[in-house]
Design a binder for these strands. Structure first.
Length: 671
DNA sequence: AGCACGCCGACT
DNA sequence: GTCGGCGTGCTC
C-alpha cells in the first residue's frame, strides 16, 4: 500500500491544497494522473500525484483511496518540480501550472494518419560551412554538453549573422548523445523558414511542431508522441516550453527579447525563466539568441550568470544597412506637415525605380497618445517615474500611468514657449491611405493585426511580398520580426516616437529593439540596404545607438537609468490589479491591500509600493481597475510573494466578494 | 466550486 | 411543530 499527495483538478482557489489518499496500485508515481473520490458525494475527480510515501507520518481522518491510475498520461518528476516552482514564482494554483504540462484535448482515436507539418518542404540539408564566428560559438558550447553541465549562453548576434545554424549544430550534438531539445520561436506563423530548415535537417519523424492551429485531438496525439519518446526535437512558441520531453539537452529561445515569451494569462509565466529552470533540472544548456538582447539578459551576462557569445558579422558579408535619422522638427519648420519627410519620399521613389522593395514601419499603439511640443520636441514626463504622460481627453489632463500623478496640459511649451504643444498619433491605416495617394501606380499592402485577421492569413501577405508582387509593405512590429527577404532596399520608420512615448519604463529598450530589428530587414541580399528613422527626438540615446548599431552604448545608458529608478533588472516589478463594479470599492480595497502588504513585509518597505492608482485601461468589461506596483529588490522575493499570495488568496476565496484580484510578476505591459 | 450543516422566520 | 432561507465551513 502506498500513500499519495494529490492536487485535485478543480478550477478554484478553495481546493488548491494537497490531499492524501491511499493507493493500492504500485504503479503510482510522482506525476501520475489519477482519479479520486472527492468531498461528500465522493464524486470522482481527476487529480495529479505530487508526492508519494510508503508510510503515513500522522493519522488522517477520513482517508480515502485512489480510484484509478491513468495508464496513459503522467508528468515527469521534473515537470512536477517545475509546477511547484511555478506556483511560488508566479502566484498561481498548482492546477494552473499542471495544466501547462498536460494535453488539453483527448485522443482523436480514429487512428487516422497525421501529417506532422503539412507545408514543410524541407530545405535541403545544410552542409554550409560555418563562419569562424559560428564555429567558435559552437565550439564553446560543445564541451558543456559533453560534460553534461547546465549553462546559459546569450548569443548576441547581429541580424543575419546565422544564429539558426548554430542552434542546429548544437541540437545535432545533443541528439547525437541521445538527448532531446526544445526550439522556441516567438511566433510560429512568422517563422516558417526556420521550421523548414529544421525539418530539412532533422526530418519530420523526430520533430514535433506545436502551434495554435492544431486541433485538440492533434495536440493530444502530438503530446503523446513526445511523451512516448518518439520525438527528439520540439519546435514551438511559448507553450512549447512545457513539452513532455525527458533528458533534455538543449533549450533554444530564438529572439529571446520578444515579449511573446511572457504569458499574459494565468499562469503568467515567463518562458525564458521556465526554460532555465527546466534546463537546470535536466543538466541542459540554454541558448538565448537575439540581435538585441533584453536588458535583463545582458545584465545577467554581465554578472556572469550567463555566458555571452558575440557574433559581429553577417553570414553573407553584406554590411549592416546605412541608417539615417530624419529630424521631423526641421520638416515642420520647412512647412512639411505630412507624415513623409522629403528624404523618405525621395528614398522610396528611388527604390521603387530600382525595383527594390520598401517596408514602412509604424508601431501604432493607437489608443495611447502623448503630449508633445511640435516645435522643440519636448514631451511631458512624470517627474517621479521618468516616463511619458498620457493625454486623457475626458479629464483634459496628462496622467502618469505608473504612479498616478497628473497635471494640466500647459498652453505654452514649458521648454521653448512655443504654442504647438499638442497630443497626437497616427496609425498604419492612415499611412497606407497616404502612401496610395502618393504612389498610386504601385502595389501596396499592409501587415498588422487588422489585416492578418481580416484577410485570413499572414502567409498571403508575406507570400505576395516574397514574390515581389508587393512594392511597398506597411506594417506594425509584425514586419520587424524575422522576415528574411533579400530585395528590401529601404526600411522607413515613420515615427520612432510612438514606441518611445509609451508609458512604460521599457519604452527606450523597445524602441532600440524595434529600430534595430526593423533595420535588419533591409539589405539582406547582396546589396546594402538603407534605413530612415523619422523622429522628433533625433538626439535620444536609444535612436542614436540604433543608428550606429551600437548595442553596448545603449546598454550602458539604459542600465544606468534603470539602476537609478530601481527598475528591472535591478528589481522585480509586481503588479497587483484589483477590479470591482464600483470605482470607489476598487480604489478602497486597493488601498487596504497596500496597507496589508506593508504590514506583512514591514513599514520600511512602504516606499517600494506605488499606488493605488487607476490602471491605464481604467475600465474593462464594466469593472473598474486599480493597481499597485511593487518594486521587489533582490533578496525580498520570498517574503513579498508570501504576503502577496496570502492577500490574493483571502480576496479570491471570499464568497461574497465582488472583487477580482490579479497578480503579475514582471508584466510586459502595464495595461 | 459544490454540498451539508445549522440557526432564524413563515407556514400547514 | 417543521419547511426552507442562505451564512459558514470543509473537501484527504
Amino acid at each position: 500500500m502506498k500513500y499519495v499527495n494529490v492536487v485535485i483538478d478543480n478550477n478554484t482557489d478553495h481546493t488548491d491544497n494537497l490531499y492524501t489518499y491511499s493507493c493500492a496500485d504500485d504503479n503510482v508515481r510522482v506525476g501520475s494522473k489519477v482519479t479520486v473520490p472527492f468531498a461528500m458525494g465522493n464524486r470522482i475527480k481527476e487529480a495529479y500525484v505530487i508526492q508519494t510515501a510508503d508510510q503515513l507520518t500522522e493519522e488522517i481522518k477520513g482517508l480515502k483511496a485512489v480510484d484509478a491510475v491513468d495508464p496513459e498520461i503522467s508528468l515527469s518528476e521534473e515537470a512536477v518540480a517545475t509546477c511547484i516552482w511555478m506556483k511560488r514564482q508566479y502566484l498561481c494554483r498548482y492546477i494552473d501550472a499542471i495544466k501547462c504540462f498536460t494535453p488539453a484535448g483527448t485522443s482523436s482515436k480514429r487512428g487516422k494518419i497525421r501529417t506532422p507539418y503539412k507545408d514543410a518542404t524541407g530545405e535541403s540539408s545544410g552542409g554550409k560551412a560555418l563562419t569562424p564566428e559560428q564555429k567558435n560559438a559552437v565550439e564553446s558550447i560543445r564541451p558543456v554538453i559533453a560534460a553534461g553541465e547546465h549553462n546559459v549562453f546569450l548569443i548576441h548576434g547581429v541580424t543575419g549573422s546565422g544564429k539558426t545554424e548554430i542552434y542546429m549544430k548544437v541540437i545535432e550534438e545533443c541528439i547525437g548523445r541521445g538527448r532531446t531539445a526544445i526550439m522556441m520561436v516567438p511566433e510560429i506563423s512568422l517563422t516558417p523558414q526556420t521550421i523548414d530548415r529544421f525539418i530539412g535537417r532533422f526530418g519530420t519523424e523526430q520533430i514535433a511542431v506545436l502551434h495554435s492551429k492544431l486541433s485538440l485531438g492533434e495536440r493530444y496525439d502530438e503530446w503523446m508522441r513526445i511523451r512516448r519518446g518518439e520525438v527528439k526535437i520540439v519546435i514551438g512558441a511559448r507553450s512549447a516550453i512545457f513539452a513532455p520531453l525527458e533528458n533534455i539537452g538543449t533549450i533554444v529561445l530564438d529572439e529571446e527579447h520578444e515579449t511573446t515569451y511572457k504569458s499574459d494569462m494565468t499562469p503568467k509565466y515567463d518562458a525564458v525563466e521556465v526554460a532555465i529552470r527546466r534546463a537546470k533540472k535536466n543538466h541542459a544548456v540554454v541558448l538565448l539568441g537575439s540581435a538585441t538582447p533584453s536588458l535583463v539578459s545582458s545584465y545577467k551576462a554581465e554578472q556572469g550568470e550567463y555566458h555571452k557569445i558575440l557574433l559581429k558579422e553577417r553570414y553573407n558579408g553584406t554590411p549592416l544597412p546605412d541608417v539615417e535619422i530624419v529630424d521631423m522638427r526641421e520638416e515642420l519648420k520647412q512647412g512639411n506637415r505630412s507624415i513623409f519627410s522629403v528624404s523618405l519620399y525621395e528614398e522610396i521613389k528611388k527604390n521603387l525605380a530600382e525595383k527594390r522593395q520598401v517596408i514602412l514601419f509604424l508601431n501604432r499603439r493607437g489608443y495611447s497618445t502623448f503630449v508633445s511640443c511640435r516645435s522643440c520636441g519636448y514631451v511631458m514626463k512624470c517627474k517621479e517615474c521618468g516616463i511619458s504622460l498620457t493625454y486623457h481627453k475626458s479629464r483634459n489632463e496628462a496622467v502618469c500611468h505608473f504612479c498616478g500623478h497628473s497635471e494640466k496640459v500647459p498652453v505654452l511649451c514649458p521648454d521653448c514657449g512655443g504654442k504647438y504643444i499638442k497630443h497626437f498619433g497616427t496609425g498604419t491605416e492612415k499611412v497606407e491611405e497616404m502612401t496610395r495617394e502618393i504612389f498610386p501606380d504601385y502595389n501596396i499592402d499592409r501587415l498588422d493585426l487588422d489585416t492578418t485577421t481580416k484577410k485570413g492569413s499572414i502567409d498571403k501577405i508575406l507570400n505576395s511580398f516574397r514574390k515581389g508582387k508587393t512594392n511597398i509593405l506597411i506594417g506594425t512590429q509584425l514586419v520587424a520580426k524575422g522576415l528574411d527577404f533579400s530585395n528590401v532596399g529601404l526600411v522607413g520608420i515613420i515615427s520612432a516616437d510612438i514606441t518611445l512615448n509609451v508609458p512604460d519604463f521599457r519604452s527606450a529598450e523597445r524602441t532600440f529593439q524595434l529600430i534595430t530589428q526593423a533595420a535588419g530587414r533591409a539589405g539582406r541580399g547582396d546589396r546594402r540596404g538603407r534605413v530612415l528613422i523619422q523622429t522628433y527626438h533625433p538626439d535620444h540615446y536609444a535612436i542614436l545607438a540604433a543608428k550606429d548599431h551600437d548595442y553596448d552604448t545603449f546598454y550602458q545608458s539604459e542600465s544606468l537609468l534603470r539602476r537609478q529608478l530601481g527598475y528591472p533588472p535591478f528589481s522585480d516589478l509586481m503588479q497587483v490589479v484589483l477590479s470591482a463594479e464600483k470605482e470607489k470599492d476598487a480604489l478602497e480595497l486597493c488601498r487596504q491591500i497596500a496597507e496589508e502588504f506593508i504590514r506583512g513585509v514591514g513599514e520600511e518597505e512602504r516606499r517600494y509600493v506605488l499606488g493605488p492608482q487607476a490602471a491605464p485601461m481604467n475600465k474593462i468589461k464594466g469593472l473598474y481597475r486599480y493597481q499597485l506596483l511593487i518594486k521587489c529588490f533582490p533578496g525580498k522575493r520570498k517574503a513579498y510573494t508570501k504576503v502577496l499570495n496570502n492577500i490574493r488568496l483571502k480576496i479570491s476565496t471570499d464568497r461574497n466578494a465582488k472583487y477580482l484580484i490579479s497578480v503579475d510578476v514582471n508584466p510586459y505591459s502595464f495595461l
